[in-house]
């Protein structure tokens, strides 16, 4: 509990730092613009062809929106882990974190925070709700629960990706480009109708990094696309498992750092 309070204080100090620079408001609008324009390709495609098989635009956008919202949440709250390799390990500032009596992951996660990143989640959430309404999904308690847990699981999944990035950076010192497959590139996969995603990609994003478990399955369960509810509810445990896996890699990384020096 105390950790969460401390994390809040970290966010506060970054929030205040952000306000020190003028133009933070423009940044918020800028990110929102990127978020809105990103799926525009699908919108054009569907407006031209109507439907692709059973896939209508609101189905595709719903899956995409769920993934984007989760990514946005993780990006807002644990962004520090993403920038971490560049900033901290290379400059040796990681030493400073080791000198403070609180959890390292918390400090790394709290090492950066920008309020404008939240506009991605905001945009995603609005789109998701719009799609759910178009498909006339009943706002039952169960449905709300599935969607909420999907977002929690998604947040954990993407947090896991960021932790993994930082953990691997202890060995490579630089951040890794291929890890973007699991960050910004991963929700692009959700733009493709699920049935047409190649089997390999589908397996990677289901069984390794559970992006589809936190977006497609909950959406399918809620909208009644022939997936059972229990699969939709797997989002949280799947996200948690992936995050814990990432934490174990991170731990090995920290030990490697301490024994090889900076």
């Amino acid at each position: 509990m105390q950790s969460f309070r401390l994390y809040g204080k970290y966010l506060k100090i970054h929030f205040l730092s952000g306000l020190q620079y003028k133009g933070w408001f423009l940044m918020t609008i800028q990110v929102l613009f990127v978020v809105i324009t990103d799926p525009i390709g699908i919108l054009f495609l569907f407006s031209r062809f109507g439907q692709i098989g059973v896939w209508s635009v609101e189905k595709v956008i719903l899956i995409y929106a769920l993934a984007v919202t989760s990514f946005g949440l993780a990006e807002s709250f644990v962004r520090g882990l993403d920038i971490f390799p560049w900033q901290m390990i290379r400059t040796g500032n990681f030493d400073r974190l080791l000198l403070r009596p609180c959890p390292l992951l918390l400090q790394a996660a709290g090492s950066s925070f920008h309020i404008h990143r939240l506009s991605r989640s905001f945009g995603g959430l609005v789109a998701a709700i719009w799609c759910l309404r178009l498909q006339e999904v009943e706002p039952t308690l169960l449905n709300a629960l599935v969607i909420t847990l999907a977002l929690c699981g998604g947040f954990l999944t993407y947090t896991g990706v960021f932790i993994l990035t930082s953990g691997l950076a202890f060995f490579t010192i630089r951040s890794l480009d291929w890890i973007y497959i699991f960050t910004n590139a991963s929700y692009q996969v959700a733009k493709c109708p699920f049935d047409y995603v190649p089997r390999l990609l589908r397996n990677v994003f289901t069984f390794f990094m559970p992006m589809l478990v936190v977006s497609y399955y909950p959406a399918a369960a809620v909208c009644g696309w022939g997936q059972p509810y229990w699969k939709g509810l797997l989002a949280l445990p799947a996200g948690l498992t992936f995050a814990l896996f990432a934490v174990s890699i991170w731990r090995i990384g920290v030990r490697h750092y301490q024994s090889t020096g900076s």
């Binding site: 309070r5 100090i13 205040l16 730092s17 620079y21 500032n93 400073r96 009596p101």
Partner: peptide, 20 residues
């Protein structure tokens, strides 16, 4: 190397250290 937060007043850094 600095242990203070670069962009905020010194007092804010001290307050955060109090919590840390």
């Amino acid at each position: 190397r600095s242990q203070l937060w670069w962009d905020v007043p010194v007092k804010d850094s001290f307050d955060l250290l109090k919590d840390i």
